[in-house]
Design a protein around this nucleic acid. Structure first.
Length: 204
DNA sequence: CCACGGATTGGCT
DNA sequence: GCCAATCCGTGGA
């Protein structure tokens, strides 16, 4: 993998900072999933921030439960949840222990393992350009392409199965800030960030 | 124990 | 653009 030589795994101190700082800086970083012979990587292009202390849309707004407890850990853990009876979504826990904050990974630009991602998503290897965009352009799609499910709940992102590689932070001019998608509460918070003009972003 | 609804997706009108 | 699919976490009885 090319990126292995130019980027290093992000450490705990990246994740334990304030939610929206981490959310913005996650744009452009590379998600890596290693599993036996499979090696899947992709660039994060769209994220949303959730904070249970002030944000009614966050799963942690109701306090600690069996489902959301990993979000109350310190930053650098993987929060995976199941929704709509069909889809998994994955989050990067941020901040200090007890805070209940995390960043939803909404879209990724595939880099390596594209054939395996296509197998995971469509059950076949050959894909056209349109299929390629459709591989990882949404939170449920990302988890299906990367074969992320509840068995990855709570994974330590400083470990060696799922982790992020550092990349230079993007210029502010290349980051678009908007309201979040698909929620009914706290709808006015401008906590969604995506890379300007990237074709893998889920919606405008 | 049971009813409710969701940080989505894809197929059909 | 609209809506069904499909399960399980959550909370009230």
């Amino acid at each position: 993998m090319n990126s292995k030589h130019s980027a290093k795994k992000l450490k705990r101190n990246f994740y334990t900072r304030e939610l929206n700082i981490v959310a913005k800086e996650l744009l452009g970083k590379i998600l890596v999933k290693k599993e036996s012979r499979k090696f899947l990587t992709g660039k994060i292009v769209e994220v949303e921030a959730y904070d249970g202390e002030v944000d009614e849309a966050a799963h942690t707004f109701i306090g600690i439960t069996e489902r959301n407890k990993i979000m109350f850990n310190e930053g650098g853990y993987f929060y995976v949840y199941f929704t709509y009876g069909a889809h998994y979504c994955c989050n990067v826990v941020t901040g200090k222990k007890g805070h209940g904050t995390a960043v939803l990974i909404r879209a990724i630009e595939p880099l390596e393992g594209i054939e395996n991602m296509a197998l995971n998503r469509f059950g076949r290897i050959l894909i056209n350009e349109k299929d390629k965009i459709n591989l990882t352009s949404g939170p449920g799609k990302v988890c299906q392409a990367f074969a992320i499910s509840k068995k990855h709940y709570g994974y330590d992102l400083t470990g060696d199965k799922i982790f992020l590689l550092n990349q230079p932070n993007l210029d502010e001019n290349n980051i678009v800030t908007t309201k979040r998608i698909g929620i009914k509460k706290s709808v006015d918070l401008q906590w969604r960030f995506y890379i300007k003009d990237n074709p893998y972003v889920s919606k405008k």
